[in-house]
Design a protein around this nucleic acid. Structure first.
Lengths: 236, 236
DNA sequence: CATAAAACATGATAAAAATCATGTGGCTGG
DNA sequence: CCAGCCACATGATTTTTATCATGTTTTATG
């Protein structure tokens, strides 16, 4: 079980330079500081559930979270991977709907909760923060559109390679410089790629045979990044 | 060739109650009115191109536009369909990047151009409008995420049915109450569904045989909407 | 109006991916 | 510690989808 220091206030939070909220005016940061509620979730726990009403936004202090939709036939689709400094739950809040995805913790994670009213009122009074939120939304939209195009046009082999690179971008390597710094099941990787679990397992084995990756249980080591990039066939 | 009345000002624009801009403060609407540039594009023309720099946003007064990405292998992926009242080009502007998609006109379309500086300055000074923009972005993000999930999990047959319903939602029917009010090539429909053109043609023929739709060149009539909904296998 | 080009259509085939089946190893809870 | 379950793995098979080939129809153009 991971041990966390509860941050006494937002000024000393280890995400104070990373999160969008650092762009808020000082007075508002103070308000957040007063009203925020900090919480620790253990691996596998749910921060919020698809279909329920949002009461605020969550800011990840430390940890890893997956955001996933349930498809019409009940199959999970992982929409986003989140880390320290990321904000979640704002999408539903802004469009005034229920959550369209569930947030599930991938490893012990500390999260600050900011109540809806405060979040909205700050957004309405702090144009700078509002602008940053728009940027953030724009970036997410862009990523979603690119992913959508790849999902429609690229074979699974390329998408798996791309997904491994994406995981590396998001969570980086462990101190050894090659092991992806997150433990995902093969099924989760499949739900990120958008394919059947068996296909993912099979292709990972192939990647391993080709010497691109090394597999040790849930540990994945990227041995030849360049070859992986080539396999992903990315133009951008 | 369609004939358009150039709107003399935003107050009399036929989209003044539909567009996000109607949520802006009166003073800003007046500013937009002064600085906007109206333009008519003919079918097939490009409003802006993927990869170029944005100089402002576009507001569709009347007409139909497709927004499409080019995949890494050069294949088109249509990511959005737009109509009168819709705004386009804001995504790239907000995240400060080049356009990540091209906007191409599906039929003669009248568009107002609003310069970047004005748009940004209004957003920074009009919290109400900023909030509406955030809502709009949130909605788009939501739609993109749902589409992403369906692309990953649903067979092409269901996706085609869903796409036909989506086209109907966007552009509605002609006065006869059954014909989709837009002319798209089979290839464009395929690029919307995310599949090969031949597959789309084949499935449309099947839908026709089953009596769900009627095909007359590019005219598509929806004869049995309920069955189409069932075919799309939608839970939401 | 003739003609070429593009779009549509459909069958045949090949490739990709999902599903089914079976087995193994590892972890968990009694 | 053992039984049972679950994740991982891999082969066989089936289904789905793309690609290729060819013909027809529509549309655009000189």
């Amino acid at each position: 079980m991971t041990h966390f220091h509860e941050p006494t206030d937002c000024q000393s939070c280890n995400q104070r330079f990373t999160s969008v909220f650092c762009k808020a005016k000082q007075q508002f940061i103070a308000e957040i500081n007063e009203q925020k509620v900090c919480n620790v979730y253990k691996k596998g726990q749910t921060i919020f559930n698809e279909g329920s009403h949002p009461f605020g936004v969550y800011c990840i202090n430390e940890g890893k979270v997956k955001l996933s939709h349930l498809g019409d036939d009940g199959k999970e689709q992982i929409i986003r991977l989140l880390r320290g400094g990321d904000v979640l739950g704002y999408r539903a809040l802004l469009s005034g709907e229920r959550y369209s995805a569930s947030a599930i913790v991938l490893e012990d994670t500390q999260v600050c909760f900011i109540p809806k009213e405060l979040f909205i009122s700050i957004l309405k009074n702090d144009a700078g923060l509002a602008f940053e939120m728009m940027k953030l939304l724009s970036d997410e939209l862009h990523k979603a559109e690119v992913k959508l195009t790849h999902l429609a046009q690229k074979p699974i082999r390329e998408r798996l390679a791309e997904t491994l690179l994406f995981i590396k971008e998001t969570y980086g390597y462990e101190s050894d410089g090659v092991t992806l710094n997150v433990r995902l099941s093969r099924e989760e990787i499949a739900n990120l790629v958008g394919t059947a679990t068996e296909s993912t397992i099979r292709l990972l084995s192939e990647f391993k045979k080709g010497g691109m990756v090394e597999l040790e249980g849930k540990k994945i080591k990227i041995l030849r990044q360049k070859e992986l990039i080539r396999t992903a066939n990315l133009q951008d």
